[in-house]
Design a protein around this nucleic acid. Structure first.
Length: 587
DNA sequence: CACGGGTGCGCG
DNA sequence: AAAGCGCGCACCCGTG
């Protein structure tokens, strides 16, 4: 039996079944939309199929969204369908993103017996191959075409209505329908949040950013040229290393020059160079830092990504195997601390910056029902609580030990602390060790709500069978062992990271509803709205008078997310909230 | 000239 | 190998 986190535990707390009406949207011909209404039982209501043009869709949705209870909109892909509605000032309450849900159900060990999981690959499995054009959201509905390349001609096509029924059946037949239903709802809500955040954008001051760049790099140079400050640094580095043609951006070139100068580095990484005593090191490290700023978040980035005082990153919900989001272009999830002062609230508005404290260790606490660790995290910093438990002496030790447990560290300080952590918190440590053991065997592991890890690929299995052959060489056995351990560290971390991503989705989904309730009649960008998400952190842009209420909502949603995942188990999910004018002021 | 792997570094 | 997980992106450099 594959490892499934917490299935022995009491069922996830469920909201009352709120089935209501579903309206399935699908393409009809090349320019039209077909809307099919399904009743509580999932049956097509008589006379409930209508077709319309794409231009008529926003009004159709607005009309139905105004009626209570609101429908749940079922559509193939939020990325392609929702931006057009937002552009027409139409928001929706709830949806099913068939594409994202299909991927979850196809992979989930909880639904592995369903017809959906056993069916041949269909167009719904081609999600990642489908490269729609997010830069023109209004046009994607028309450009979206599942039949573009020759190969997909042989792929089975399944209508949105049939796919929705197939998914509903897979959930109903699964080993834990409450969890999967929650996961699919949270994933779909996340897709709505991503589209809304992209639409609203992160308030961003191009002026402040430009000022920062100019202070650090000098005036903006002509395209392709090096700013004055970097140019001077390159000159200094070349002189110190006596290498007049050195390109400091070329690691092999730089390493050779360093070695020639008697510096015995094996790589050119900053952390390694930091240990070296030599006059070139200081300007070199400064060059690396500033050059990074220039290439990743310089003027070109500013031109490409900031318009009308907003940063509009392209979020990709479910873009990571663990269910975390990814981004495409703009590097929104790597926004350096260095530039966060340019994230500025509008006049009369505030940024509410919220961060879930020690999220992953707390998730592990809930997954494993480790009451000792829950107690350590109650009402205080979890790492301090671990110190108070006597397991370790210093907060820094608690942190490195916890990270090591979740990432699979075997050596160094973290490895040395593991026995002590295990003695104090046996349940938590056992859960990740079991997950690692499953991965080393090539088995699948599953998150709290039912997202399963991928299986290792063909080359992994080939390496394992080569090593188990009686004629295997020592090298083959070593290679197989290394790969098995690598995969074990992946599955070890998967259960925690994937469950943390689920918590974050529930947090945002609940928060989104609370924010709407704070300003029910307004347009999205006129009331408090989410503008940024970073794994365990959110930013809400809110009118100043609503800032306190917004911060309270953020905290209440965190409590609710904990309940949704872990029911009555007493693990806490504290969030720090800061009400600020710019992002750099928070923590 | 395009592509893909490697390196390095930003984020959690 | 930075002790260990997950990413995206810019750049270099070898290959075709």
């Amino acid at each position: 039996m594959p490892t499934t986190t917490g299935l022995d535990a009491p069922p996830v707390t469920r909201r009352p079944q709120n089935r209501g009406v579903h309206i399935v949207l699908d393409r009809s011909g090349s320019t039209g939309v077909r809307a099919t209404t399904l009743n509580d039982a999932g049956e097509i209501v008589e006379d409930a199929t209508t077709t319309m043009t794409f231009d008529d869709l926003p009004e159709f949705v607005r009309r139905h969204e105004a009626q209570l209870p609101r429908p749940r909109w079922v559509w193939p892909d939020t990325r392609a369908w929702y931006p057009r509605l937002l552009a027409a000032d139409v928001r929706i309450d709830r949806c099913v993103d068939l594409q994202l849900c299909h991927t979850i159900l196809r992979m989930s060990a909880l639904a592995s017996d369903s017809p959906l999981a056993r069916s041949p690959l269909s167009a719904w499995d081609a999600a990642t191959a489908l490269d729609d054009q997010p830069s023109a959201p209004a046009a994607t509905l028309f450009e979206l075409d599942l039949q573009t390349d020759a190969e997909s001609a042989s792929v089975v096509t399944v209508s949105a209505v049939d796919e929705f029924r197939s998914q509903s059946e897979a959930v109903a037949l699964s080993r834990s329908s409450g969890r999967l239903r929650l996961l699919l709802a949270a994933e779909s809500a996340g897709a709505l949040v991503a589209a809304e955040m992209r639409y609203a954008g992160l308030p961003y001051s191009a002026e402040r950013h430009d000022r920062l760049l100019t202070e650090l790099l000098g005036r903006r140079p002509a395209t392709g040229a090096r700013p004055a400050v970097l140019d001077d640094l390159v000159g200094e580095i070349r002189r110190e290393l006596d290498s007049p043609l050195l390109n400091p951006d070329s690691p092999p070139d730089l390493l050779r020059a360093l070695n020639r100068a008697g510096i015995l580095a094996t790589s050119t990484r900053s952390w390694e160079l930091r240990k070296v005593q030599h006059p070139v090191i200081e300007p070199l490290l400064r060059y690396k830092k500033l050059s990074r700023l220039m290439t990743a978040n310089g003027w070109a980035w500013l031109d490409a990504w900031i318009s009308d005082g907003r940063f509009h990153p392209d979020y990709v919900p479910g873009g990571v195997v663990t269910g975390r989001w990814a981004t495409r272009g703009g590097g929104a999830l790597q926004l350096p601390r260095q530039v966060r002062g340019a994230v500025v609230a509008d006049d009369g508005w505030k940024l509410i910056v919220a961060d879930a404290a020690q999220l992953e260790p707390r998730i592990l606490t809930g997954l494993s029902h480790d009451t000792a660790m829950a107690a350590a995290g109650r009402g205080k910093d979890l790492y301090e609580g671990i110190v108070a438990s006597g397991a370790v002496e210093e907060r820094s030790q608690a942190k490195v030990a916890m990270l090591g447990a979740m990432y699979g560290a075997t050596t160094g300080e973290s490895g040395r602390l593991m026995p002590r952590l295990k003695r104090a918190f046996p349940r938590a440590v056992k859960l990740v060790e079991d997950a690692a053991a499953e991965g080393e065997k090539g088995e699948v592991v599953t998150s709290r709500l039912g997202r399963s890890s991928p299986r290792p690929g063909a080359s992994w299995h080939a390496a394992q069978s080569a090593a188990s052959d009686s004629a295997s060489t020592a090298a083959e056995e070593r290679r197989a062992r290394t790969q098995a351990r690598d995969w074990g560290r992946f599955t070890r971390n998967f259960v925690v990271q994937a469950s943390a991503a689920e918590w974050a989705l529930c947090w945002m989904a609940d928060l989104r509803q609370r924010l709407t309730a704070l300003a029910p009649e307004s347009r999205l960008q006129d009331g408090p709205h989410l503008v940024y998400f970073l794994h365990d952190e959110v930013i809400v842009h809110a009118p100043a008078p609503l800032a306190d209420a917004t911060a309270a909502a953020v905290r209440e949603s965190a409590v609710q997310a904990g309940r949704l995942l872990f029911g009555d188990f007493p693990v806490e999910f504290p969030v720090t909230t800061a009400i600020v004018d710019n992002y750099a002021e928070a923590k």
